[in-house]
Design a protein around this nucleic acid. Structure first.
Lengths: 242, 242
DNA sequence: TCTATAAATGACGATTGGTCATTAATCTAG
DNA sequence: CTAGATTAATGACCAATCGTCATTTATAGA
């Protein structure tokens, strides 16, 4: 049995290595230039071995997405020990998501391009299952924070009968803001906003709209944003600014 | 000079025809299956002629995007004569955008996949310029509505010094909501919200957060949503439900 | 009608995704 | 330790695809 686990570990390690190489190729060229031939050439393995790991190019894409989601989840996990009111904790989620897109622009871009039925059809079922589960775990984490806030009367009970709607609102705003900011071409509108605070402002607008206390005019959330950076994501920001 | 304009018109007509065929190919197969060879085969022209229109596959993609933006713009133009308060007019924009994604799922999907520097690099400059201009026109339309509302004291002056931030917030929420709703795989979170009203609810949350009067608890925006459907987008909805 | 310009054509080379018969490595049992 | 069996790795190969360009065809104007 030990040989089994050893082999499985070796296979997993090789898969991670292949993903590293795939990211290198995208970094040096572009997403479209990530071909199985190039990946094979860059690795010390043959095409057939690469195809033993990834059943198709689309499966490789999904594997990159899965890595991105794993990293996101681990980043979100870091805010477990963060001391702050419930709104600050939601902001920390938004902060973390934006930081992820800054630290891992390639994984972010891949996720955006890959998330579609046509791609999933060509990926292996196991891969898709893993993707969905990680995503659900993160949604449930957000929902749990909403429930807690409502129980503590920090969040109005206006949307009490549909907590997932609140989850969706926060998620959609974070996703929309970051995606437009980081993936769009330069446009006059985007050039005239403060990009560094845009995600914070948009999240605050949504939280105000949800009547989540304390309101943005009763609290200095810019300071919270700063504190999140320093207390939770210090390491990531340090490597980012290097 | 007349022959010049006639030829130019013929070329433009042929380009529209080619875009129709490209959409057909995506409909019947998938985005990845849209190849220049297939497009050539389906048309009555040769490969070289197709390449006279589209300098590359990426240029073809951008041409599809440009068509999508033109359609969006024309849909937004329909709400010029809509009678309603300023919040209802913003909702009409969100409604229009969601309706566009429902009526033209392929153009929506193409836009999402295409909007990236790597693709733009391979598209013709003229195409990119046209894309940017159409986009800016729509942003300016939204900004104009915000200015009017602020002048009429329907919208708080809290964000007065940065109107583009307000534009961005509304845009990001619409984009994020619709993109997640229509492009994601089925996930427990999405299955538990009312998809038909999710965009309205999210837009309302943002507008409440912006302190845009009248608040959602002082006005029946579900009725407004219905009225927008009937008065502005009756035709589109009729063809959609066919 | 003749010539100069513009447009259309499709064969071609290079690259790609994916397959599969062959080869190599590893394991198991006697 | 060895022989046979099972598993994994290999890369030549095929069909599909992108984009080019020398050649052919159509058109415009004198």
């Amino acid at each position: 049995m030990t040989t089994q686990t050893r082999k499985a570990r070796e296979v997993a390690e090789r898969e991670e290595l292949l993903l590293d190489l795939a990211i290198e190729i995208i970094e040096e060229h572009s997403f479209a230039q990530l071909t199985m031939d190039k990946l094979t050439a860059r690795s010390e393995y043959s095409k057939g071995t690469v195809y033993n790991h990834f059943s198709s190019k689309e499966d490789l894409w999904c594997a990159l997405c899965a890595r991105g989601l794993r990293i996101q989840k681990s980043m979100f996990g870091k805010l477990a020990n963060f001391e702050g009111n419930s709104r600050e904790r939601i902001l920390a989620l938004s902060f973390g998501y934006e930081l992820f897109t800054l630290c891992y622009p390639i994984l972010t871009m891949v996720s955006l391009r890959v998330m579609s039925p046509a791609v999933f059809e060509k990926a292996s079922p196991a891969r898709i299952k893993a993707l969905g589960e990680t995503e659900d775990e993160m949604v449930e984490m957000l929902k749990g924070m909403i429930e807690t806030a409502m129980a503590n009367n920090e969040l109005s009970r206006r949307y009490e009968d549909n907590l997932y709607q609140v989850t969706f609102a926060i998620w959609a705003m974070s996703f929309g803001s970051v995606t437009i900011l980081r993936n769009s071409t330069p446009t006059p509108c985007l050039e005239r906003i403060d990009i560094d605070s845009a995600v914070l402002v948009n999240a605050s607008i949504v939280l105000d709209g949800l009547q989540w206390q304390p309101y943005s005019w009763d609290w200095d959330y810019k300071a919270s944003w700063q504190r999140i950076a320093e207390e939770i994501f210090y390491e990531e920001l340090a490597t980012l600014n290097k």
